[in-house]
Write a protein that binds this DNA or RNA. Structure first.
Lengths: 254, 254
DNA sequence: CGTTCTTTTGATGATGCTCAACTGGGGTGG
DNA sequence: CCACCCCAGTTGAGCATCATCAAAAGAACG
Protein backbone atom coordinates (compact mmCIF):
# COMPACT_ATOMS: atom_id res chain seq x y z
CA UNK A 1 0.00 0.00 0.00
CA UNK A 2 1.48 3.27 -1.06
CA UNK A 3 0.89 6.58 0.65
CA UNK A 4 0.25 8.29 -2.61
CA UNK A 5 -2.53 10.62 -1.50
CA UNK A 6 -0.54 11.73 1.47
CA UNK A 7 2.64 12.50 -0.40
CA UNK A 8 0.66 14.14 -3.16
CA UNK A 9 -1.08 16.64 -0.92
CA UNK A 10 2.08 17.33 0.98
CA UNK A 11 4.64 17.51 -1.78
CA UNK A 12 3.08 19.96 -4.14
CA UNK A 13 2.85 22.88 -1.78
CA UNK A 14 6.28 22.15 -0.38
CA UNK A 15 7.82 22.36 -3.80
CA UNK A 16 6.06 25.61 -4.31
CA UNK A 17 7.36 26.74 -0.99
CA UNK A 18 10.93 25.91 -1.85
CA UNK A 19 10.85 28.40 -4.65
CA UNK A 20 9.94 31.37 -2.52
CA UNK A 21 10.96 30.66 1.04
CA UNK A 22 12.65 28.20 3.27
CA UNK A 23 10.81 26.00 5.72
CA UNK A 24 10.03 26.76 9.33
CA UNK A 25 11.66 23.47 10.26
CA UNK A 26 14.91 24.59 8.69
CA UNK A 27 14.74 28.04 10.23
CA UNK A 28 17.17 28.76 13.01
CA UNK A 29 14.50 30.79 14.77
CA UNK A 30 11.82 28.16 15.03
CA UNK A 31 12.29 27.85 18.75
CA UNK A 32 11.36 31.50 19.20
CA UNK A 33 8.82 31.91 16.46
CA UNK A 34 5.26 30.86 15.82
CA UNK A 35 6.34 27.35 14.89
CA UNK A 36 7.75 26.57 18.31
CA UNK A 37 6.52 23.28 19.71
CA UNK A 38 4.93 22.06 16.49
CA UNK A 39 5.57 18.56 15.28
CA UNK A 40 6.77 17.86 11.74
CA UNK A 41 3.32 17.48 10.28
CA UNK A 42 1.92 20.65 11.81
CA UNK A 43 4.97 22.60 10.81
CA UNK A 44 4.57 21.46 7.22
CA UNK A 45 1.02 22.73 7.30
CA UNK A 46 2.24 26.07 8.55
CA UNK A 47 4.92 26.15 5.88
CA UNK A 48 2.25 25.67 3.28
CA UNK A 49 0.42 28.86 4.08
CA UNK A 50 3.42 31.07 4.63
CA UNK A 51 3.86 33.32 1.66
CA UNK A 52 6.98 34.75 0.18
CA UNK A 53 9.78 36.19 2.15
CA UNK A 54 9.93 39.91 1.86
CA UNK A 55 12.92 42.17 2.18
CA UNK A 56 12.55 45.56 3.78
CA UNK A 57 15.34 48.06 3.41
CA UNK A 58 16.56 50.15 6.32
CA UNK A 59 14.18 52.99 7.00
CA UNK A 60 11.40 51.51 4.89
CA UNK A 61 7.97 50.72 6.31
CA UNK A 62 6.76 47.16 6.65
CA UNK A 63 3.27 48.51 7.20
CA UNK A 64 1.70 51.85 8.09
CA UNK A 65 -1.21 53.11 10.10
CA UNK A 66 -4.50 52.35 8.35
CA UNK A 67 -3.04 49.73 6.07
CA UNK A 68 -5.56 46.91 5.86
CA UNK A 69 -4.67 43.73 7.65
CA UNK A 70 -3.76 41.00 5.23
CA UNK A 71 -0.74 39.35 6.82
CA UNK A 72 1.18 39.01 9.99
CA UNK A 73 4.95 39.13 9.75
CA UNK A 74 7.62 37.01 11.37
CA UNK A 75 11.02 38.65 11.42
CA UNK A 76 13.57 36.36 9.90
CA UNK A 77 16.43 38.79 9.86
CA UNK A 78 16.98 42.31 11.11
CA UNK A 79 15.23 44.70 13.46
CA UNK A 80 12.10 46.83 13.38
CA UNK A 81 10.48 49.54 15.41
CA UNK A 82 6.74 49.95 15.82
CA UNK A 83 5.55 53.47 16.44
CA UNK A 84 2.48 55.64 16.80
CA UNK A 85 1.90 59.31 16.26
CA UNK A 86 -0.22 61.60 18.41
CA UNK A 87 -2.81 63.82 16.75
CA UNK A 88 -0.39 66.63 17.59
CA UNK A 89 2.38 64.92 15.63
CA UNK A 90 4.50 63.61 18.49
CA UNK A 91 5.85 60.14 18.01
CA UNK A 92 5.97 57.26 20.45
CA UNK A 93 7.82 54.07 19.73
CA UNK A 94 5.84 51.22 21.23
CA UNK A 95 8.36 48.48 20.63
CA UNK A 96 11.58 47.28 19.09
CA UNK A 97 11.28 43.89 17.43
CA UNK A 98 14.03 41.48 16.51
CA UNK A 99 14.43 38.20 14.66
CA UNK A 100 11.93 35.53 15.64
CA UNK A 101 9.32 38.02 16.79
CA UNK A 102 5.94 38.62 15.18
CA UNK A 103 4.52 41.88 13.96
CA UNK A 104 1.03 43.00 13.12
CA UNK A 105 -0.99 42.09 16.22
CA UNK A 106 -2.44 45.56 16.40
CA UNK A 107 -4.36 45.16 13.15
CA UNK A 108 -6.50 42.17 14.01
CA UNK A 109 -8.93 44.14 16.15
CA UNK A 110 -10.18 46.38 13.37
CA UNK A 111 -8.67 44.95 10.17
CA UNK A 112 -6.42 47.99 9.97
CA UNK A 113 -3.05 48.71 11.44
CA UNK A 114 -2.86 51.14 14.34
CA UNK A 115 0.84 51.73 14.22
CA UNK A 116 3.69 51.92 11.75
CA UNK A 117 6.42 49.32 11.53
CA UNK A 118 9.75 50.48 10.14
CA UNK A 119 12.94 48.54 9.48
CA UNK A 120 15.89 49.70 11.57
CA UNK A 121 18.28 47.96 9.18
CA UNK A 122 17.95 45.89 6.04
CA UNK A 123 15.63 43.13 7.16
CA UNK A 124 13.63 40.18 6.02
CA UNK A 125 10.24 38.87 7.10
CA UNK A 126 8.04 35.87 6.43
CA UNK A 127 4.57 36.93 5.40
CA UNK A 128 1.77 34.98 7.06
CA UNK A 129 -1.62 35.51 5.39
CA UNK A 130 -3.89 36.11 8.31
CA UNK A 131 -7.09 34.57 7.04
CA UNK A 132 -5.33 31.39 6.07
CA UNK A 133 -3.58 31.36 9.40
CA UNK A 134 -6.83 31.64 11.31
CA UNK A 135 -8.26 28.76 9.30
CA UNK A 136 -5.22 26.71 10.13
CA UNK A 137 -5.45 27.61 13.81
CA UNK A 138 -8.84 25.94 13.80
CA UNK A 139 -7.24 22.73 12.59
CA UNK A 140 -4.08 22.71 14.68
CA UNK A 141 -4.76 23.22 18.39
CA UNK A 142 -1.07 23.31 19.20
CA UNK A 143 -0.52 26.11 16.74
CA UNK A 144 -3.56 27.97 18.01
CA UNK A 145 -2.28 27.81 21.54
CA UNK A 146 1.16 28.99 20.46
CA UNK A 147 -0.47 31.87 18.65
CA UNK A 148 -2.42 32.90 21.73
CA UNK A 149 0.64 32.71 23.89
CA UNK A 150 2.58 35.02 21.64
CA UNK A 151 -0.26 37.48 21.49
CA UNK A 152 -0.64 37.41 25.25
CA UNK A 153 3.09 37.91 25.68
CA UNK A 154 2.77 41.02 23.58
CA UNK A 155 0.12 42.27 26.00
CA UNK A 156 2.35 41.54 28.95
CA UNK A 157 5.32 43.19 27.29
CA UNK A 158 3.34 46.34 26.73
CA UNK A 159 2.20 46.37 30.33
CA UNK A 160 5.86 46.31 31.27
CA UNK A 161 6.49 49.37 29.14
CA UNK A 162 3.55 51.12 30.77
CA UNK A 163 5.14 50.42 34.13
CA UNK A 164 8.39 51.86 32.85
CA UNK A 165 6.82 54.98 31.41
CA UNK A 166 4.48 55.63 34.29
CA UNK A 167 6.73 54.94 37.22
CA UNK A 168 10.42 54.96 36.55
CA UNK A 169 13.00 57.73 36.53
CA UNK A 170 15.15 58.19 33.48
CA UNK A 171 18.06 56.18 34.82
CA UNK A 172 15.95 53.18 35.65
CA UNK A 173 14.21 53.29 32.29
CA UNK A 174 17.54 53.10 30.54
CA UNK A 175 18.69 50.24 32.75
CA UNK A 176 15.51 48.32 31.99
CA UNK A 177 15.92 48.98 28.31
CA UNK A 178 19.50 47.73 28.19
CA UNK A 179 18.93 44.64 30.30
CA UNK A 180 15.93 43.78 28.19
CA UNK A 181 17.96 43.95 24.99
CA UNK A 182 20.66 41.94 26.67
CA UNK A 183 18.27 39.16 27.61
CA UNK A 184 16.76 39.02 24.16
CA UNK A 185 20.11 38.73 22.45
CA UNK A 186 21.06 36.02 24.92
CA UNK A 187 17.89 34.12 24.00
CA UNK A 188 19.05 34.23 20.39
CA UNK A 189 22.44 32.82 21.17
CA UNK A 190 24.27 36.14 20.94
CA UNK A 191 26.39 37.79 23.56
CA UNK A 192 24.38 39.27 26.38
CA UNK A 193 27.08 41.79 27.19
CA UNK A 194 28.17 43.02 23.82
CA UNK A 195 25.92 44.04 20.99
CA UNK A 196 25.09 46.74 18.56
CA UNK A 197 22.29 49.21 19.14
CA UNK A 198 20.27 49.13 15.94
CA UNK A 199 18.31 52.25 16.80
CA UNK A 200 19.33 55.88 17.02
CA UNK A 201 19.54 57.83 20.25
CA UNK A 202 16.43 59.58 19.12
CA UNK A 203 14.58 56.28 18.76
CA UNK A 204 15.65 55.26 22.23
CA UNK A 205 14.36 58.55 23.57
CA UNK A 206 11.10 58.23 21.72
CA UNK A 207 10.69 54.78 23.19
CA UNK A 208 11.61 55.66 26.77
CA UNK A 209 9.64 58.88 26.87
CA UNK A 210 12.77 61.01 27.11
CA UNK A 211 14.54 63.48 24.85
CA UNK A 212 17.59 62.67 22.82
CA UNK A 213 19.66 64.93 25.08
CA UNK A 214 18.62 62.95 28.11
CA UNK A 215 19.59 59.72 26.41
CA UNK A 216 22.98 61.12 25.57
CA UNK A 217 23.51 62.30 29.13
CA UNK A 218 22.45 58.95 30.50
CA UNK A 219 24.95 57.13 28.33
CA UNK A 220 27.67 59.50 29.46
CA UNK A 221 26.74 58.96 33.08
CA UNK A 222 26.60 55.19 32.68
CA UNK A 223 30.06 55.30 31.15
CA UNK A 224 31.44 57.30 34.07
CA UNK A 225 29.83 54.89 36.49
CA UNK A 226 31.63 52.03 34.79
CA UNK A 227 28.38 50.34 33.84
CA UNK A 228 28.89 50.30 30.09
CA UNK A 229 31.34 50.98 27.34
CA UNK A 230 29.84 52.71 24.32
CA UNK A 231 31.51 53.40 21.05
CA UNK A 232 28.99 54.93 18.76
CA UNK A 233 26.32 52.22 18.66
CA UNK A 234 28.56 49.40 19.82
CA UNK A 235 27.62 48.61 23.36
CA UNK A 236 29.33 46.58 26.05
CA UNK A 237 27.78 45.95 29.44
CA UNK A 238 30.62 46.11 31.94
CA UNK A 239 28.56 45.51 35.06
CA UNK A 240 25.39 43.63 34.15
CA UNK A 241 24.68 42.81 37.78
CA UNK A 242 24.55 46.41 38.87
CA UNK A 243 22.62 47.29 35.75
CA UNK A 244 20.00 44.69 36.59
CA UNK A 245 19.84 46.04 40.12
CA UNK A 246 19.22 49.50 38.73
CA UNK A 247 16.54 48.12 36.46
CA UNK A 248 14.88 46.54 39.46
CA UNK A 249 14.97 49.90 41.21
CA UNK A 250 17.06 48.68 44.10
CA UNK A 251 20.01 50.96 43.47
CA UNK A 252 20.06 54.69 44.06
CA UNK A 253 21.00 57.02 41.29
CA UNK A 254 24.06 59.32 41.27
CA UNK B 1 -36.88 11.37 12.15
CA UNK B 2 -36.33 13.09 15.46
CA UNK B 3 -33.41 15.32 16.32
CA UNK B 4 -32.90 13.52 19.56
CA UNK B 5 -29.13 13.51 19.58
CA UNK B 6 -29.03 17.15 18.87
CA UNK B 7 -31.41 18.20 21.58
CA UNK B 8 -29.80 15.83 24.01
CA UNK B 9 -26.37 17.31 23.70
CA UNK B 10 -27.70 20.81 23.75
CA UNK B 11 -30.30 20.64 26.43
CA UNK B 12 -28.46 19.06 29.27
CA UNK B 13 -25.75 21.65 29.62
CA UNK B 14 -28.22 24.44 29.10
CA UNK B 15 -30.29 23.28 31.99
CA UNK B 16 -27.17 23.16 34.07
CA UNK B 17 -26.39 26.66 32.92
CA UNK B 18 -29.73 27.94 33.98
CA UNK B 19 -28.99 27.04 37.55
CA UNK B 20 -25.81 29.05 37.81
CA UNK B 21 -25.88 31.77 35.22
CA UNK B 22 -27.90 33.41 32.56
CA UNK B 23 -27.29 33.00 28.87
CA UNK B 24 -25.14 35.17 26.67
CA UNK B 25 -28.11 35.65 24.38
CA UNK B 26 -30.09 37.14 27.23
CA UNK B 27 -27.24 39.31 28.39
CA UNK B 28 -27.55 43.01 27.72
CA UNK B 29 -23.85 43.16 27.03
CA UNK B 30 -23.64 40.62 24.28
CA UNK B 31 -22.99 43.27 21.68
CA UNK B 32 -19.83 44.30 23.49
CA UNK B 33 -18.67 40.99 24.84
CA UNK B 34 -17.10 37.85 23.46
CA UNK B 35 -20.42 36.65 22.12
CA UNK B 36 -20.84 39.54 19.71
CA UNK B 37 -21.69 38.43 16.20
CA UNK B 38 -22.42 34.82 17.09
CA UNK B 39 -25.53 33.15 15.80
CA UNK B 40 -27.92 31.35 18.12
CA UNK B 41 -26.25 27.99 17.77
CA UNK B 42 -22.74 29.24 18.39
CA UNK B 43 -23.89 31.29 21.31
CA UNK B 44 -25.47 28.24 22.89
CA UNK B 45 -22.19 26.45 22.54
CA UNK B 46 -20.46 29.30 24.29
CA UNK B 47 -23.07 29.32 27.01
CA UNK B 48 -22.36 25.68 27.60
CA UNK B 49 -18.77 26.19 28.61
CA UNK B 50 -19.21 29.34 30.63
CA UNK B 51 -18.99 28.50 34.30
CA UNK B 52 -20.67 30.09 37.23
CA UNK B 53 -21.03 33.77 37.72
CA UNK B 54 -18.81 35.05 40.42
CA UNK B 55 -19.27 38.04 42.64
CA UNK B 56 -16.30 40.12 43.68
CA UNK B 57 -16.71 42.62 46.46
CA UNK B 58 -15.28 46.11 46.24
CA UNK B 59 -11.55 46.07 46.88
CA UNK B 60 -11.28 42.31 46.49
CA UNK B 61 -8.99 40.71 43.91
CA UNK B 62 -10.37 38.82 40.95
CA UNK B 63 -6.92 37.39 40.37
CA UNK B 64 -3.39 38.18 41.46
CA UNK B 65 0.08 38.09 40.00
CA UNK B 66 1.29 34.51 39.66
CA UNK B 67 -2.14 32.99 39.95
CA UNK B 68 -2.32 30.14 37.44
CA UNK B 69 -4.45 30.74 34.39
CA UNK B 70 -7.63 28.73 34.55
CA UNK B 71 -10.25 31.15 33.32
CA UNK B 72 -10.80 34.37 31.55
CA UNK B 73 -13.39 36.72 32.96
CA UNK B 74 -16.11 38.74 31.31
CA UNK B 75 -17.36 41.59 33.43
CA UNK B 76 -21.09 41.43 33.75
CA UNK B 77 -21.48 44.17 36.30
CA UNK B 78 -19.16 46.64 37.93
CA UNK B 79 -15.66 47.94 37.36
CA UNK B 80 -12.15 46.62 37.83
CA UNK B 81 -8.63 47.91 37.73
CA UNK B 82 -5.65 45.88 36.56
CA UNK B 83 -2.33 46.81 38.05
CA UNK B 84 1.30 45.85 38.28
CA UNK B 85 3.94 46.46 40.91
CA UNK B 86 7.57 47.34 40.27
CA UNK B 87 10.27 45.37 42.05
CA UNK B 88 10.71 48.56 44.11
CA UNK B 89 7.08 48.44 45.17
CA UNK B 90 5.67 51.24 43.03
CA UNK B 91 2.31 50.55 41.48
CA UNK B 92 1.10 51.16 37.97
CA UNK B 93 -2.48 50.72 36.93
CA UNK B 94 -2.50 49.33 33.40
CA UNK B 95 -6.21 49.58 32.81
CA UNK B 96 -9.70 50.22 34.08
CA UNK B 97 -12.23 47.68 32.86
CA UNK B 98 -15.98 47.97 32.76
CA UNK B 99 -18.98 45.81 31.99
CA UNK B 100 -18.70 43.82 28.77
CA UNK B 101 -14.90 43.79 28.80
CA UNK B 102 -12.72 40.75 29.23
CA UNK B 103 -9.98 40.22 31.79
CA UNK B 104 -7.10 37.80 32.01
CA UNK B 105 -5.35 38.18 28.66
CA UNK B 106 -2.02 38.64 30.36
CA UNK B 107 -1.98 35.11 31.69
CA UNK B 108 -2.19 33.16 28.47
CA UNK B 109 1.44 33.69 27.55
CA UNK B 110 2.89 31.88 30.52
CA UNK B 111 -0.09 30.24 32.24
CA UNK B 112 0.29 32.71 35.07
CA UNK B 113 -1.11 36.15 35.62
CA UNK B 114 1.27 39.06 35.31
CA UNK B 115 -0.93 41.63 36.95
CA UNK B 116 -3.54 41.94 39.65
CA UNK B 117 -7.19 42.61 38.95
CA UNK B 118 -9.18 44.31 41.71
CA UNK B 119 -12.84 45.24 41.87
CA UNK B 120 -13.45 48.97 42.16
CA UNK B 121 -16.97 48.31 43.38
CA UNK B 122 -19.10 45.26 44.04
CA UNK B 123 -18.95 43.45 40.74
CA UNK B 124 -19.87 40.30 38.94
CA UNK B 125 -18.04 38.32 36.27
CA UNK B 126 -18.70 35.35 34.03
CA UNK B 127 -15.96 32.78 34.35
CA UNK B 128 -14.79 31.32 31.06
CA UNK B 129 -12.62 28.21 31.49
CA UNK B 130 -9.74 28.86 29.18
CA UNK B 131 -8.94 25.35 28.02
CA UNK B 132 -12.54 24.68 27.13
CA UNK B 133 -12.71 28.02 25.40
CA UNK B 134 -9.70 27.25 23.24
CA UNK B 135 -11.23 23.94 22.26
CA UNK B 136 -14.40 25.71 21.29
CA UNK B 137 -12.50 28.32 19.32
CA UNK B 138 -11.23 25.47 17.16
CA UNK B 139 -14.83 24.56 16.35
CA UNK B 140 -16.34 27.99 15.92
CA UNK B 141 -14.40 30.17 13.50
CA UNK B 142 -16.62 33.16 14.18
CA UNK B 143 -15.94 32.92 17.88
CA UNK B 144 -12.23 32.47 17.27
CA UNK B 145 -12.13 35.58 15.17
CA UNK B 146 -14.05 37.54 17.77
CA UNK B 147 -11.60 36.35 20.40
CA UNK B 148 -8.63 37.48 18.36
CA UNK B 149 -10.18 40.85 17.72
CA UNK B 150 -10.71 41.48 21.40
CA UNK B 151 -7.19 40.43 22.23
CA UNK B 152 -5.80 42.66 19.50
CA UNK B 153 -7.91 45.55 20.72
CA UNK B 154 -6.33 45.12 24.10
CA UNK B 155 -2.91 45.44 22.46
CA UNK B 156 -4.00 48.58 20.65
CA UNK B 157 -5.49 50.02 23.81
CA UNK B 158 -2.24 49.52 25.65
CA UNK B 159 -0.32 51.18 22.86
CA UNK B 160 -2.56 54.16 23.33
CA UNK B 161 -1.67 54.30 27.00
CA UNK B 162 2.01 54.11 26.11
CA UNK B 163 1.52 57.10 23.88
CA UNK B 164 -0.19 58.91 26.71
CA UNK B 165 2.47 58.10 29.28
CA UNK B 166 5.42 58.69 27.00
CA UNK B 167 4.34 61.84 25.24
CA UNK B 168 1.62 63.83 26.90
CA UNK B 169 1.63 66.50 29.56
CA UNK B 170 -0.49 66.07 32.63
CA UNK B 171 -3.38 68.12 31.31
CA UNK B 172 -3.62 66.20 28.07
CA UNK B 173 -3.43 62.87 29.88
CA UNK B 174 -6.39 63.84 31.99
CA UNK B 175 -8.35 65.00 28.97
CA UNK B 176 -7.64 61.70 27.20
CA UNK B 177 -8.67 59.79 30.28
CA UNK B 178 -11.98 61.58 30.67
CA UNK B 179 -12.95 61.46 27.00
CA UNK B 180 -12.09 57.79 26.94
CA UNK B 181 -14.40 57.06 29.88
CA UNK B 182 -17.04 59.19 28.24
CA UNK B 183 -16.91 57.22 25.00
CA UNK B 184 -17.05 53.90 26.79
CA UNK B 185 -20.09 54.86 28.81
CA UNK B 186 -21.73 56.10 25.65
CA UNK B 187 -21.07 52.72 24.02
CA UNK B 188 -22.95 51.14 26.91
CA UNK B 189 -25.93 53.36 26.52
CA UNK B 190 -25.12 55.62 29.44
CA UNK B 191 -24.66 59.35 29.41
CA UNK B 192 -21.42 60.42 27.84
CA UNK B 193 -21.38 63.65 29.81
CA UNK B 194 -22.39 62.61 33.25
CA UNK B 195 -21.07 59.64 35.14
CA UNK B 196 -19.51 58.50 38.34
CA UNK B 197 -15.79 57.97 38.70
CA UNK B 198 -15.46 54.51 40.18
CA UNK B 199 -11.81 54.93 41.04
CA UNK B 200 -10.07 57.08 43.64
CA UNK B 201 -7.92 60.09 42.78
CA UNK B 202 -4.98 57.94 43.71
CA UNK B 203 -5.99 55.29 41.20
CA UNK B 204 -6.30 57.90 38.49
CA UNK B 205 -2.84 59.16 39.34
CA UNK B 206 -1.39 55.69 39.38
CA UNK B 207 -2.89 55.12 35.96
CA UNK B 208 -1.82 58.41 34.40
CA UNK B 209 1.68 58.37 35.84
CA UNK B 210 0.98 61.36 38.08
CA UNK B 211 0.65 61.97 41.80
CA UNK B 212 -2.61 62.28 43.61
CA UNK B 213 -1.87 65.96 44.23
CA UNK B 214 -1.49 66.57 40.53
CA UNK B 215 -4.80 64.88 39.85
CA UNK B 216 -6.50 67.03 42.41
CA UNK B 217 -4.97 70.18 40.96
CA UNK B 218 -5.97 69.16 37.47
CA UNK B 219 -9.57 68.68 38.54
CA UNK B 220 -9.55 72.09 40.19
CA UNK B 221 -8.09 73.66 37.07
CA UNK B 222 -10.58 71.92 34.79
CA UNK B 223 -13.38 73.21 36.99
CA UNK B 224 -12.08 76.75 36.79
CA UNK B 225 -11.79 76.44 33.03
CA UNK B 226 -15.43 75.42 32.86
CA UNK B 227 -14.61 72.06 31.36
CA UNK B 228 -16.16 69.90 34.05
CA UNK B 229 -18.27 69.93 37.13
CA UNK B 230 -17.06 67.61 39.84
CA UNK B 231 -18.81 66.79 43.04
CA UNK B 232 -16.76 64.19 44.80
CA UNK B 233 -16.78 61.38 42.28
CA UNK B 234 -19.76 62.58 40.33
CA UNK B 235 -18.51 64.02 37.10
CA UNK B 236 -20.16 66.14 34.46
CA UNK B 237 -18.45 67.15 31.25
CA UNK B 238 -19.51 70.71 30.54
CA UNK B 239 -17.49 71.21 27.38
CA UNK B 240 -16.84 67.83 25.74
CA UNK B 241 -15.72 69.48 22.51
CA UNK B 242 -12.96 71.45 24.11
CA UNK B 243 -12.03 68.44 26.21
CA UNK B 244 -11.65 66.34 23.08
CA UNK B 245 -9.55 69.06 21.52
CA UNK B 246 -7.30 69.01 24.56
CA UNK B 247 -7.07 65.25 24.36
CA UNK B 248 -6.02 65.56 20.74
CA UNK B 249 -3.34 68.01 21.79
CA UNK B 250 -4.68 70.83 19.67
CA UNK B 251 -5.41 73.19 22.52
CA UNK B 252 -2.82 75.03 24.56
CA UNK B 253 -2.82 74.64 28.29
CA UNK B 254 -3.33 77.45 30.81
C1' DC C 1 -19.16 62.54 67.27
C1' DG C 2 -14.65 61.33 67.14
C1' DT C 3 -11.56 58.72 64.12
C1' DT C 4 -9.71 57.72 59.87
C1' DC C 5 -9.14 58.02 55.16
C1' DT C 6 -9.48 60.84 51.03
C1' DT C 7 -9.02 65.08 48.87
C1' DT C 8 -7.55 69.80 48.44
C1' DT C 9 -4.35 73.51 48.59
C1' DG C 10 0.16 75.75 49.36
C1' DA C 11 5.32 76.20 49.29
C1' DT C 12 9.53 74.43 47.66
C1' DG C 13 12.60 71.81 44.86
C1' DA C 14 14.42 68.24 41.54
C1' DT C 15 14.17 65.94 37.32
C1' DG C 16 14.25 66.21 32.77
C1' DC C 17 12.99 69.61 28.84
C1' DT C 18 14.25 73.48 25.87
C1' DC C 19 17.34 76.11 23.49
C1' DA C 20 21.85 76.60 21.86
C1' DA C 21 26.46 75.67 20.64
C1' DC C 22 29.84 72.38 19.59
C1' DT C 23 32.05 67.82 18.13
C1' DG C 24 32.99 64.07 15.13
C1' DG C 25 32.24 60.86 11.39
C1' DG C 26 30.93 59.93 6.63
C1' DG C 27 29.90 61.25 2.24
C1' DT C 28 30.36 64.45 -1.76
C1' DG C 29 32.30 67.41 -4.90
C1' DG C 30 35.88 70.51 -6.29
C1' DC D 1 43.27 64.79 -1.33
C1' DC D 2 41.19 68.26 0.98
C1' DA D 3 37.31 71.31 1.98
C1' DC D 4 32.88 71.29 2.90
C1' DC D 5 28.54 69.89 4.44
C1' DC D 6 25.25 67.26 6.79
C1' DC D 7 23.62 64.47 10.23
C1' DA D 8 23.92 62.15 14.71
C1' DG D 9 25.39 62.78 18.95
C1' DT D 10 27.34 65.42 22.99
C1' DT D 11 27.54 69.00 26.37
C1' DG D 12 26.09 73.23 28.79
C1' DA D 13 22.82 76.80 30.89
C1' DG D 14 18.42 78.04 32.30
C1' DC D 15 13.76 76.88 33.04
C1' DA D 16 9.03 74.48 33.38
C1' DT D 17 6.50 70.85 34.95
C1' DC D 18 5.38 68.02 38.12
C1' DA D 19 6.97 65.68 42.59
C1' DT D 20 7.63 66.16 47.39
C1' DC D 21 6.59 67.71 51.83
C1' DA D 22 3.29 69.70 54.85
C1' DA D 23 -1.08 70.99 56.64
C1' DA D 24 -5.85 71.60 56.63
C1' DA D 25 -10.50 70.53 55.14
C1' DG D 26 -14.02 67.34 53.96
C1' DA D 27 -16.28 62.78 53.56
C1' DA D 28 -17.03 58.10 55.49
C1' DC D 29 -17.61 54.97 59.07
C1' DG D 30 -18.19 52.91 63.27
Amino acid sequence: MTTSTCTATATIPIKKQAETSQHCSACSLHELCLSKGLDKVDMMQLDMIIGRRRKVAKGEPLFRVNDPLTKLYAIRLGHFKTHKVTPAGEEQIVGFQMAGELLGWDAIGSDRHHCDATALEDSEVCEIPFTKLETLLGQLPVLMHRFHRLMSQEITREQGVMLLLGNMRAEQRMAVFLTNLSARYAARGYSSTQFQLRMSREDIGTYLGLTIESISRLFSRFKKMGLVKIDNRQLQLLDPVRLKAMAAGSVACD
